[in-house]
């Protein structure tokens, strides 16, 4: 992977345009299907949130996973490239967005159904921890350092932080939580109606595509920023050389 974006034409290409259209179309479909879901006996209108909340949470897991995978690829000597470090950073930043939205939409769903905006339940607490870990990871990336030093310590931090994702995923099975179990793994007796499963799966697709589109653009922004730093460094070195010649 080359970090240089020689074209310098912003962050859009035909591929990202296609990805963007697919993301927008699937998001629009998710909203249309989700908002037209019928009221349920247990939750009334609030069950319509099933179209967005699980998909957003899934996208936050994907973001964490991509950050960890890109970090591992940077650490592996054969695949080491600055691009993997930039991708890890881009994915983590988008991950903050989706993790924060997971907490927000979860609280909005919890208030009318549980009677509380927040409870220190294992799933909610671990989701909040994920957000803190991602913010900490991004803060670590901003500590001034050589790009290789930054990449190494960020990669190690990401690989440690990602361990919370499987724990969070299985939290609803390992501990007694207020949060419900996995919607797609309920026993047939408790299985969701087909319309709700369809809306939820559509939400998974839409949020994954939105995540991908945002991450590709954020990655390219990071490449352009890196090129600017290189250009500034080259200009500064050139200025010093000229000073040395004229002195």
């Amino acid at each position: 992977m080359n970090t240089r974006n020689t074209g310098r034409r912003g962050t859009g290409t035909a591929v990202t345009m296609t990805l963007g259209i697919a993301a927008l179309a699937s998001l629009a479909a998710t909203y249309a299907v989700g908002l037209s879901l019928p009221r349920t006996y247990e939750q009334g209108d609030y069950s319509k949130l099933i179209a967005i909340h699980p998909g957003i949470a899934w996208a936050s897991y994907v973001a964490f996973g991509v950050t960890a995978l890109a970090s591992a690829l940077w650490l592996w000597p054969r695949t080491r490239s600055l691009a993997w470090d930039l991708l890890a950073g881009a994915s983590a930043e988008v991950g903050v967005l989706f993790t924060a939205l997971t907490l927000i939409t979860g609280s909005i769903w919890g208030r009318p159904t549980w009677g509380a905006w927040w409870v220190w339940d294992a799933r909610l607490t671990l989701s909040a921890l994920e957000l803190m870990l991602l913010l900490g990871y991004l803060a670590l990336r901003r500590v001034p350092a050589d790009s290789e030093v930054r990449a190494r310590r960020s990669a190690l931090a990401a690989l440690l932080a990602v361990l919370v994702v499987p724990v969070n995923h299985y939290a609803v099975q390992w501990w007694r939580t207020l949060h419900q179990g996995g919607s797609l793994s309920l026993t047939p007796k408790d299985a969701l109606d087909g319309k709700f499963i369809f809306a939820m799966v559509l939400g998974f697709l839409a949020m994954t595509l939105v995540y991908a589109w945002l991450t590709v653009h954020r990655f390219r922004v990071a490449q352009l920023e890196e090129d600017l730093v290189d250009d500034d460094l080259d200009a500064a070195l050139e200025a010093r050389r000229r000073e040395a010649v004229t002195a």
């Binding site: 310098r8 034409r9 912003g10 962050t11 859009g12 998001l27 909203y31 989700g34 908002l35 209108d45 609030y46 319509k48 949130l49 967005i52 909340h53 957003i56 988008v94 967005l97 924060a100 939205l101 927000i104 939409t105 909005i108 769903w109 208030r111 009318p112 939105v210 589109w213 945002l214 653009h217 954020r218 390219r220 922004v221 352009l224 920023e225 600017l228």
Partner: peptide, 30 residues
């Protein structure tokens, strides 16, 4: 429906705001 609209609305607003910032940032670095 207030909570439902809030959930859908905040999600759309946050995603749109970030997408707008990323695209703007990319263009400003041309």
């Amino acid at each position: 429906m207030t909570y439902v609209w809030a959930g859908y609305g905040i999600t759309l607003a946050v995603l749109a705001a970030y997408a707008g910032w990323v695209v703007h940032r990319g263009r400003s670095l041309k």
